[in-house]
């Protein structure tokens, strides 16, 4: 695969490390239930199709990226800097 890093351009995926599902959100420690922690830690949609996922450009700029990729075809639909995604998520949070 080739992943277009938002900072470095398109690179072979061997430069990147994979973490997994980017849609699971770390619960709010002050209020979360055990079930929410369990879901965050262990339960995944594992879709056949579009998947938002975290990669890190470990052999490049070290940026964490949110890559949206079709798991059936490996087609990469979008790439965003994870920090930007996380910041806008924080902003959107009440």
């Amino acid at each position: 695969m080739r992943i277009p890093c938002v900072y470095c351009g398109e690179r072979g995926h061997e430069e990147f490390a994979y973490l997994g599902d980017a849609t699971v959100q770390r619960p709010d420690a002050s209020s979360a239930t055990a079930a929410e922690w369990h879901d965050y830690g262990y339960v995944r949609d594992n879709p056949s199709g579009s998947h938002r996922e975290l990669w890190q450009h470990v052999s490049g700029c070290r940026a964490w990226l949110v890559v949206t990729r079709d798991t059936r075809t490996h087609a990469i639909l979008s790439v965003e800097a994870a920090r930007d995604v996380a910041l806008s998520r924080e902003k959107a949070a009440p």
Partner: peptide, 18 residues
């Protein structure tokens, strides 16, 4: 060494971006 660095960067950029 490498794993902890990536773990910290994950926390920095994704879990605690602020």
């Amino acid at each position: 060494a490498a794993g902890v660095m990536a773990h910290m960067e994950h926390a920095q950029q994704w879990l605690r971006p602020g």
